[in-house]
Computed example of a mutant assay.
Amino acid sequence: MTGAFLAGLLAGYGVAVPVGAIAILILGLSARHGFRVGVAAALAVATADGLYAALATLGGAGLARVLAPVAGPLRVVAALVLLGIAAHGLWRTWSGRRAREVTETPSGRGLHTPGRAYAALLGLTLLNPATVLYFAALVLGRRDAADPDPTAAAWFVTGAFLASASWQLLVAGGGSMVGRVLAGPRGRLVTGLVSSALIAALAAATLLSG
């Protein structure tokens, strides 16, 4: 139970930490329309991450049962997918730093109520298929994927949700000082590197679990 929860926490932080357009939008909404709107937006992103974690857990378990005879190679493939995601994140972080990219902050017009902010951010986050690929690789790489414990699966999803929620709430409630640090070039570099390191660690754990 504890292991599944910690794995979910690590997975949730791995996908949530990079500061991109969504995080900047949350920051902007919180600054312009108040903390309640920022909290609603943050929880919407965490909800989407939790839904994707649950979808990957349920779908990945079914697929893993079919692929049980090749469980060893399956873990290798899952680890390679995670390493690819980590490498891609590292490349985006580093290339953005070299090019000194400045991403235009989404305006968030019309999202001045908690309900509207929640609905909009939930939809925006669910439109990212890379998130479900990420969680699917994690689930398929687990040694118990073919015969998962429902309680452990629930703890994994809970950990992923709480990790994402805690980070997004930090962005929403950090105010101008923390927000500017996270959204600035150095903040994006650090969060990108941390995320890639977390995902690479998950890939290594997947390989060693065999």
Rank of each mutant, 00 (worst) to 15 (best):
P129G: 09
F135E: 00
G174M: 00
L127V: 12
G184C: 05
L80W: 05
L74D: 06
S176K: 13
S176A: 11
V66A: 12
G50F: 00
L126C: 11
A31M: 10
V77I: 05
G3W: 05
G210S: 15
A23N: 08
V81K: 10
G184S: 05
L43H: 11
A163V: 08
Y134N: 08
G59I: 11
G108M: 08
A42C: 07
A99F: 13
A117D: 00
G20V: 04
S107E: 14
L67P: 09
R186N: 10
A86Q: 02
G173R: 01
L82C: 13
P148E: 12
T131M: 11
G173A: 03
Y13V: 02
D49T: 07
P148W: 12
A119L: 09
Y52E: 00
A136C: 15
L182N: 05
S209Q: 14
F5D: 01
I199A: 04
N128R: 08
L140P: 10
A117G: 03
L140D: 13
Y13K: 03
L162S: 03
G28K: 14
G3E: 09
A71T: 05
P106N: 08
T191H: 07
G108S: 12
G3V: 02
L111H: 01
L138F: 12
F5W: 03
G38S: 01
A203C: 06
Q168R: 06
A160P: 02
L67T: 05
I199L: 09
L67G: 07
G210T: 15
L126K: 10
Q168D: 03
A46L: 01
F135L: 00
G34N: 09
T57E: 08
G159Q: 01
L25Y: 06
A4N: 01
L29A: 07
P150S: 11
A16L: 05
A165R: 00
L121W: 09
L169F: 06
V37Q: 00
A48L: 01
R186Q: 09
D147E: 15
L127W: 12
